[in-house]
Computed example of a mutant assay.
Amino acid sequence: MSHHHINYLEIPVKDMTKTKTFFNRVFGWQFQDYGPQYSCFLDVGITGGFFESGNVFTTEKGAPLIVLYSSSLEKSQSSVIENGGRISKPIFKFPGGRRFQFLDTNGNEYAVWSE
């Protein structure tokens, strides 16, 4: 077994305040700020944070896809829309379950899956 594993994830965002508000309202995330341009997300399954940047990531640009889990896919999709996110791929089936992909308020692309 390898002694190397993914330990931390840093995600670029254009607007820290909008990002924290979006992820708190949609997924219930909490944050610890380290200055105005960096914020760690807490207890979300992996340790990491958001940092301010002018860049965005999407699968169309070849970026890795960050996939979140939800026990209620339809509720999560509705919440994304209600809080200013845009659906880039509506709910579809894939081997192992169903998922949708969305753009957050920065234009970054994520996916949410469920069984």
Rank of each mutant, 00 (worst) to 15 (best):
114 S>H: 00
100 F>R: 03
56 V>G: 08
37 Q>D: 14
32 Q>R: 15
14 K>W: 06
67 V>Y: 09
114 S>R: 01
10 E>H: 03
100 F>M: 08
83 N>D: 09
3 H>C: 00
19 T>G: 01
20 K>L: 11
56 V>S: 12
46 I>Q: 12
27 F>Y: 07
98 R>G: 00
89 K>H: 09
66 I>N: 05
5 H>E: 12
39 S>M: 10
105 T>M: 07
106 N>W: 01
18 K>E: 05
24 N>Q: 14
43 D>I: 09
49 G>D: 06
1 M>L: 08
61 K>H: 15
26 V>F: 04
18 K>T: 01
53 S>P: 11
97 G>C: 06
90 P>D: 15
81 I>V: 14
68 L>Y: 05
87 I>N: 14
70 S>T: 03
102 F>K: 12
14 K>L: 04
12 P>S: 00
67 V>S: 12
90 P>E: 15
83 N>P: 09
45 G>T: 11
15 D>H: 10
103 L>N: 06
99 R>T: 01
107 G>A: 08
54 G>Q: 13
7 N>T: 09
21 T>N: 05
35 G>H: 09
85 G>N: 11
55 N>Q: 15
105 T>W: 07
110 Y>P: 02
45 G>P: 01
88 S>Q: 05
25 R>C: 11
67 V>H: 12
92 F>R: 03
88 S>M: 13
110 Y>Q: 00
6 I>N: 03
109 E>K: 12
74 E>D: 13
106 N>R: 02
86 R>W: 06
103 L>F: 10
86 R>Y: 06
7 N>G: 06
96 G>K: 02
84 G>T: 06
52 E>N: 12
18 K>H: 03
10 E>Q: 01
26 V>P: 05
